[in-house]
């Protein structure tokens, strides 16, 4: 899309969308939202970039390899946090019993391991959305 207005506005808007996505991911345990919705927002910002600047430029910013690593990494973060519970509490995905500090209810640093899990979910969802979109565009070219 070769339009100066659209390009400038997108440049301005993308950081805010991403910031809001990160906000939603980190506040998953105290307010509506969480890893999935925040990750979807973050992924949408990257899709917006692809739409405006084309898939080639987007591939440079967020290549297929990177998204592959992020996709696996997201779940691996989730799993490794869960495995901590096996060693400290005797159950997979234990929260309080595994020694995660629960903090004060309602504040950002609370909920034990749930914010950490949400980060993993967010990474996974964001990268999956981008990969899906890029794959669809690349398929059209073949």
């Amino acid at each position: 899309m070769d339009d100066i207005i659209v390009k400038s506005i997108t440049r301005i808007i993308i950081p805010f969308v991403q910031l809001y996505g990160i906000f939603i991911i980190l506040h998953g345990h105290v307010s509506p939202g969480g890893g999935f919705s925040g990750g979807a927002l973050f992924g949408t910002s990257l899709i917006l970039y692809t739409l405006i600047f084309g898939v080639d430029k987007a591939q440079k910013k967020f290549s297929h390899r990177v998204s592959e690593i992020a996709e696996s990494g997201g779940i691996l973060i989730y799993l490794s946090i869960g495995v901590i519970g096996i060693f400290t509490a005797g159950y997979f995905l234990s929260n309080k019993a595994a020694g995660f500090p629960l903090g004060e209810a309602g504040s950002l640093l609370s909920g034990g391991m749930i914010p950490l899990l949400m980060i993993g979910v967010g990474i996974k969802v964001a990268s999956t959305m981008v990969t899906l979109f890029h794959t669809l565009i690349m398929e059209e070219r073949l």
């Binding site: 592959e68 690593i69 696996s72 779940i75 691996l76 799993l79 495995v83 096996i86 005797g90 997979f92």
Partner: peptide, 20 residues
């Protein structure tokens, strides 16, 4: 007692590690 969940985790993480 942990073996069943370990089985599941090992299989899932294998699937995740292969693309790397």
């Amino acid at each position: 007692e942990q073996l069943p969940i370990l089985n599941l985790l090992v299989l899932l993480s294998t699937a995740l590690v292969i693309p790397l």
